[in-house]
Write a protein that binds this DNA or RNA. Structure first.
Length: 485
RNA sequence: GACCCUAUCGUCUAAUUGGUCAGGACAGCACCCUCUCAAGGUGUCAACACGGGUUCAAGUCCCGUUAGGGUCGCCA
């Protein structure tokens, strides 16, 4: 049988990391088995609907390379793929479930429910809704409905015995039927709740593998009861552990935690984000960690999914992003870096060479502006910066280095490449009886005014060119002279 | 509170389905390389939550304890 999985987000805003991971796993479960991946929009809660959220979903899936085979935009044989457009279907199946004894009509108002809840609270007993409408006959109930009375459809559960199901990651789970709530399946606005819609849609769309967060673990028995009442095949369940912000809190938008688009905006590459979050709850069971989507489509397997929560570690993501940044073709990196240079650099310099220097030195793209901030204006720096123990420099040595450097640079004529500047400069230390660092550290310091930069002395001289290099070296010489006087 | 689930280095995880010096990665630390900083290389620190069983042998199986998470919405 063809594997069919689905990603079924609610259009409520940004794509959260947890959602994205679920989508990724769903996609990979299908693709690794040569199956189909379906996108279904679960918009049955009109109050939470956010304008534009569906576009974010499309855009995100496209960015991470999740191409769905069926969905609202691409069509398919089991549509519509937007739940609000499936209203008549749910009505039909709700009525059917009532006929099958798996549900009943309920006329209780929210106030009545609240009253019962309150009474239980005051009495100190756990609340369990006891629906007076269960006593109504179906005929009587339908008469009232025909008369225009407002109603909902509630699941009917036989409290005797136990209900169990099998989950690919959590194994066999059994609960006592009496602990199950007879929840609302069809709301008074005629739209289904998730509890009903997911069962009906997954069946109708021939979904074979249901992946979702493990918060659904405790309601899954209720879904099985419905599948059974309808006489439908039960799908393969794959419940996923949560992604945590820390030991106690889930990663969530409410906490102000980063969404996928926030991370992209911060300069993380979609491929790196995907690679990282795949590893939050799944492993290839070997020592490999860097995977392309194409590889994952081959090797992903449900057995590798973990059952305990995973804490989102931004440090490791940073590292992994760095791996991806360094693996980028130079031209690609340059292209991605350009927008960051645009705001940070006004001076006319060789940006391609700058990119070569920057690429191996940043983990996330947003580190670029700070890394190149010395280019437009020489930062105010302290004379102490010329003293470097490891380079064995002192203000005296620095002064000498700068004065010599000034002469060489003034005499240099070939600025066609980094190498062209490199050779005359690197010939100096030996000539002067200095160590490379003693000569070059002061130059880089004078040119950049920073403790560390993505460029070395040679690259700095090349990038700035003769005039600016000499100007900054002169500034350094004056500083040193003033300090030594 | 009831019910369900979970438990290996600080973090993500592995452990040919009971036999390992408990492996890898990030982070940390040290060293090497080196014109700064990175990158790279080498090394190092660091874990089976606790208590009982079962067994010749338990991180692995069972029970309990503890700690965490989830569900108990006309939200998903």
């Amino acid at each position: 049988m063809e594997v069919r999985s689905r990603f079924a987000p609610s259009p409520t805003g940004y794509m959260h990391i947890g959602n994205l991971r679920t989508a990724l796993y769903e996609y990979l479960v299908a693709k690794s088995a040569g199956g189909k991946f379906i996108l279904r929009i679960e918009d049955t809660d009109q109050e939470r609907y956010v304008e534009g959220a569906v576009d974010i979903i499309y855009k995100t899936m496209q960015m991470v390379g999740l191409q769905h085979d069926e969905g609202p935009d691409v069509g398919g044989d089991y549509g519509p793929y937007v739940q609000s457009e499936r209203k008549p279907i749910y009505q039909e199946y709700a009525d059917k479930l009532v006929d099958l004894g798996g549900a009943h009509y309920c006329f209780c108002s929210e106030e009545e429910l609240e009253a019962q809840r309150k009474a239980c609270e005051e009495a100190g007993i756990p609340f369990k809704f006891r629906d007076p409408c269960k006593k109504l006959s179906v005929e009587e109930a339908r008469k009232r409905i025909a008369a225009g009375e407002k109603y909902t459809v509630r699941q009917t559960i036989d409290p005797k015995g136990t209900v169990s199901f099998d989950d690919c990651v959590y194994g066999h789970v059994t609960v006592e039927a009496k602990t199950l709530d007879e929840g609302i399946l069809l709301k008074s606005d005629g739209l289904p709740t998730y509890n009903f819609a997911n069962v009906v849609d997954d069946h109708l769309m021939k979904i074979t593998h249901v992946l979702r967060g493990n918060e659904y673990l405790s309601s899954t028995p209720k879904y099985n009861l419905m599948y059974q009442a309808f006489g439908w095949d039960i799908p393969t369940y794959v419940h996923l552990p949560p992604i945590m912000k820390d030991e106690h809190n889930k990663l969530s938008k409410r906490n102000g935690d980063a969404s996928f688009q926030d991370l992209v905006a911060k300069g993380y590459l979609p491929e790196a984000i995907v690679n990282y979050i795949i590893l939050l709850g799944w492993s290839a069971k070997n020592d490999e960690e860097i995977f392309s989507m194409a590889e994952l489509e081959k090797i992903f397997n449900i057995e590798g999914i973990n059952k305990s929560p995973a804490i989102f570690d931004i440090e490791k993501l940073k590292w992994m992003n760095g791996v991806y940044v360094r693996n980028l073709p130079a031209e690609k990196f340059h292209e991605l870096a350009l927008p960051y240079y645009k705001d940070a650099i006004k001076r006319d310099i060789d940006l391609v060479v700058l990119s070569k220097c920057v690429q191996p030195r940043v983990n996330i793209l947003s580190e670029i502006p700070e890394a190149v901030d010395f280019i437009d204006a020489l930062p105010a720096y302290d004379i102490e910066m010329y003293v470097n123990k490891k380079m064995k420099t002192t203000p005296e040595i620095a002064l000498k280095a700068l004065e010599e450097a000034k002469q060489v640079i003034a005499g240099m004529t070939d600025w066609s490449s980094v190498e062209a500047v490199h050779d005359p400069l690197l010939a100096m230390p030996e000539k002067l009886g200095m160590k490379n660092g003693q000569f070059l550290w002061p130059i880089r310091t004078a040119l950049t005014g920073k403790q560390c930069t993505p460029v070395g002395a040679v690259e700095a001289v090349y990038l700035f060119g003769k005039d600016e290099s000499l100007k900054r070296i002169e500034t350094g010489i004056e500083k040193l002279k003033a300090a030594l006087a």
